[in-house]
Design a protein around this nucleic acid. Structure first.
Length: 827
RNA sequence: GCGAAAGUGGCGGAAUUGGCAGACGCGCUGGACUUAGGAUCCAGUGAGGUUAAACUCGUAGGGGUUCGAGUCCCCUCUUUCGCACCA
């Protein structure tokens, strides 16, 4: 017979709701613990990934409550974004309506899973009372010089009709719709995240983050040390600053490489309107899409500009080439090319017959110019480099940089791969940028008192090309806040990653009508103690949020350096070895599982299948295993409840306890010990659940508990009563039901962690393994306090040991206390 | 190409510091029971070997350190992930 999971789950969800036990108090005597799982996009349906993800957060929440913390586990919705807009276009509806419907539907499913969420703190990024404060923060960023506007070539997704940040382009394709990204010259808003590059590289203030995520962010920021050196144009003397990580190769420069976008090149194009070759090449390269142009396989091409610059170190005349392999937005946008020691420059020089000059020799002096098939990029001995000849190339880097500094040619510098964050999106369903363009005053920020700039409802989504906001004249046309003359609103909306960069802080004070949040409340709750989410956010969301946090700290709004002290990147749920997706037809509907087997079964299966950070392969059989386990627990306690209650009221006594009960006592205390270790210390819920299964098996092994004496019954009751507590973080409904069945008044979250007694973890006899040369040859059952001399004698006396030692002599005996006797034997 | 992580039964996975490899679950085999259920209970289950033992082999492959290695070191292979003209 199946246990009545449906009634039990409904009952306890109701009790938790009525008693508001998951509504975190703003003030508490207890220490705070802030558990946060990344908020979902409100698709309207809970999928198995949500169930898995949030089961982890809920386990943390309930464990920390049992441990005595004042726990906050809020939830909300990342509700702006293109899916809602696209859905509305398709179904001829409005994103606001569909989004709110979806939120309502998801809320029901979250509650059906029994998650202990503080719904009084719910935020939804598409609501004016939230996005108002995003606009407010935008203005503060602007005032601090961290927002600017720039015209440049942008990643453009034709499918989504919007630009994308560099982080949102994956392999040349849109991270969302996977269509090819093009280049478009547009004027866009940027956040100056690069100002925080060095601080973002520093992870010393986080408590526990996966190494992998930190490495990914470090690689993304890509700091490299080098030198900035000024070359000068022959004739005009105009400076061309270059950045190089190889100042040691400066005497080997044989040409200069510039991209078509370089300002000097733009000047030359204007000066030489009839230079067809130059114009054609530049136009071709600029229009080429970024994927092709920046792929490693792209063929290097260029044209000679007919101009020269001077290498300050040796006065060499250096040809200036315009090429397709130099990027305008990295370093200074100009490269000193050293074909002998850089593969790209080598390829280019070979193709266009540009001289090659060796300035780093191999230690064995074997590098010969005419025999080189590729660039020599390793360190070596300086050659053809004037006063630096003979030096090792590594120390020469600093020496050469210092020499440049002395002569005023350049200095040491750092360059980053990280670019500023382009936040403009040409879409309707996002947070409007609070700016007005005035023909007289230029860019004017909307006054704080006029915030929020509300999204107009009466747009014709999808009916126009371009940004739908352009089609609402009464919204678009406003008087300038400064001069009162007619002006126009900015129609770009913010990247939704802006909305999710500070939501964790809003939860601390979600209804504040006067500011994003009260700094005092933020200081109480932040940082998030445990953050949980997918690895796909390793770079984007997690880096943006760190940037915002550091900015908010600089404003004095928060007093921590990092938003998320501990980070857990949970695995995904797969089926048939692949990520679940509708197109593959390998999805599992969590609602069906909940209806048929209960939310507790689903939760236990998902947590038991593997450790939280690893993927879970869905298995119907495995899920049935979880269901059977919960049924066995329920049956055990429901069948023996009177007996257990009777046992709990018996008095404790060591006397008159059978061997089997003594063993059960050990098993129970040992299981609790392991459970605490795994669940609390290591967040390894699969083995924590395994301990509770072991305890259940140990209890069930004992038949006819009604025949136990009072002292034995006490032990039996202790073991049984430990089960609900051990199950609470994973199967909370069943746990509460059983706890109540056993006559307890308090709910489990206020009943404390299960407790073991160290004295019951010690057996009075210990099994020693006897090894000969590393192979097990026997076992010894001895009293725990047996000394090692006795152990040696006993080990040698074991029959099988004696047989194995025939023809050998004992060289040495090692005793590992409590574990083994290791005999070293030889002929 | 560069960087990182991982590789354990038929499967998911355990093994806290080098100390009985395979906990727990699934699956499978045999049995009991039956209100035939997506039951329940009992026993078994790494491979070889044996009536049963003994014993041998076994944590991707090869070498090493050690009384003792899944765990530490070196090499190779495979897989996954990230980055990839970044000067």
């Amino acid at each position: 017979m199946e246990y009545p999971f449906g009634a039990i789950e409904r009952k306890w969800q109701q009790v938790w709701k009525e008693k508001k036990i998951f509504n975190a108090p703003q003030k508490s005597d207890k220490p705070k613990y802030y558990v946060l799982s990344m908020f979902p996009y409100p698709s309207g349906v809970l999928h198995i990934g949500h169930a898995s993800n949030y089961s982890i957060g809920d386990a943390v929440t309930r464990l920390k409550l049992m441990e005595g913390y004042s726990v906050m586990q809020p939830m909300g919705y990342d509700s702006f974004g293109m899916p809602a807009e696209n859905y509305a276009i398709l179904h001829n509806s409005h994103p606001r309506l569909t989004t709110e419907e979806n939120i309502a539907a998801m809320r029901i499913q979250f509650d059906g899973m029994g998650f202990g969420l503080d719904w009084e703190r719910e935020v939804s990024t598409c609501r004016p009372d939230y996005y108002r404060w995003g606009q407010f923060i935008f203005k503060r960023l602007y005032e601090k010089g961290l927002v600017y506007r720039k015209k440049s070539y942008q990643n453009w997704c034709e499918e989504c009709q919007t630009v994308l940040a560099n982080e949102q382009v994956e392999d040349g394709h849109c991270w969302r719709c996977n269509s090819a990204v093009e280049q478009k010259d547009l004027e866009q808003w940027y956040f100056r995240i690069t100002k925080y590059a060095d601080e973002l590289l520093d992870f010393s203030k986080v408590i526990d983050w996966p190494e992998r995520v930190m490495t990914m962010q470090k690689n993304w920021i890509g700091k490299s040390a080098g030198a900035k050196i000024d070359f000068c144009m022959e004739g005009s003397g105009e400076k061309i600053p270059i950045f190089t990580t190889r100042p040691d190769t400066i005497y080997g420069v044989t040409f200069m490489a510039l991209p078509p976008e370089h300002p000097l090149v733009q000047d030359w194009l204007a000066e030489e309107p009839n230079n067809k070759a130059l114009h054609d090449f530049c136009r071709k390269v600029i229009n080429e899409d970024k994927v092709q142009r920046s792929s490693a396989e792209a063929i290097k091409e260029g044209v000679f500009s007919g101009r020269y610059c001077i290498n300050p170190f040796n006065g060499d005349r250096v040809q200036i080439w315009i090429t397709n392999y130099v990027l305008m937005d990295y370093g200074t946008g100009a490269v000193m090319a050293v074909p002998a020691h850089d593969q790209r420059d080598f390829d280019f020089a070979k193709k266009y017959d540009i001289p090659i000059k060796i300035v780093i020799q191999k230690p064995d002096n074997s590098l010969i110019l005419n025999e080189m098939l590729e660039a020599y990029t390793e360190p070596g001995i300086m050659a053809n480099s004037d006063k630096f000849n003979g030096m090792d190339s590594e120390p020469a880097k600093a020496a050469i940089t210092a020499w440049a500094k002395t002569n005023g040619w350049g200095e040491q510098t750092f360059t980053y791969r990280l670019r500023d964050w382009g936040i403009s999106r040409q879409r309707y369903w996002g947070n409007p940028i609070p700016v007005i363009h005035c023909p007289q005053c230029g860019i004017v920020l909307v006054p704080d008192s006029d915030l929020p700039v509300k999204l107009p409802d009466n747009v014709q989504v999808g009916k126009t090309t371009g940004n739908p906001l352009l089609s609402v004249p009464e919204w678009l046309n406003v008087p300038c806040p400064q001069c009162g003359e007619p002006a126009r609103r900015e129609t770009d909306t913010m990247d939704t990653f802006v909305d999710s960069s500070w939501y964790y802080a809003r939860y601390a004070d979600p209804q504040n009508p006067d500011m994003p949040f009260d700094p005092e409340l933020a200081r109480h709750w932040l940082p998030v103690d445990q953050y949980i989410g997918g690895i796909e956010h390793a770079v984007m969301h997690l880096m943006y949020a760190r940037f915002f946090h550091k900015f908010m700290r600089d404003l004095g709004w928060v007093n921590s350096d990092e938003p998320f002290a501990r980070l857990l990147t949970q695995g995904m749920v797969t089926k048939d070895g692949a990520k679940m997706s509708k197109s593959k037809g390998n999805t599992v509907d969590p609602q069906y599982i909940i209806d048929r087997f209960g939310a507790d079964t689903l939760r236990v299966f998902l947590l038991f299948a593997s450790p939280p950070e690893k993927d879970v392969e869905w298995s119907d059989d495995g899920m049935m295993g979880a269901f059977r386990f919960l049924n066995r627990v329920w049956r055990l306690i429901d069948t023996h409840k009177e007996l257990i209650i009777q046992g709990m009221n018996s008095s404790d006594s060591d006397a008159g306890i059978s061997e089997a009960i003594s063993e059960l006592r050990f098993e129970a205390h040992h299981a609790i010990y392991r459970w605490l270790e795994d669940a609390l210390q290591r967040m390894q819920y699969n083995t924590a659940i395994a301990s509770s299964m072991e305890l259940l098996n140990a209890i069930i092994k004992l038949k006819e508990p009604e025949k136990l004496n009072a002292a034995e019954l006490k032990v039996y009751a202790f073991a049984c009563a430990a089960l609900p507590k051990m199950l609470y973080p994973f199967a909370p409904h069943l746990a509460e039901e059983l706890w109540q069945t056993l006559g307890y008044d308090k709910l489990l979250h206020e009943s404390g962690l299960p407790v073991y007694e160290p004295r019951y973890l010690i057996h009075n006899s210990i099994t020693y393994v006897v090894q000969i040369n590393g192979k097990i040859r026997g076992k010894l059952e001895v009293a725990a306090d047996t000394d090692s001399e006795t152990l040696k004698t006993m080990a040698l006396a074991v029959e099988n040991v004696q047989r194995s030692l025939e023809g050998f002599s004992v060289k040495k005996i090692i005793v590992v206390p409590g574990k083994m006797v290791s005999i070293v034997a030889g002929r």
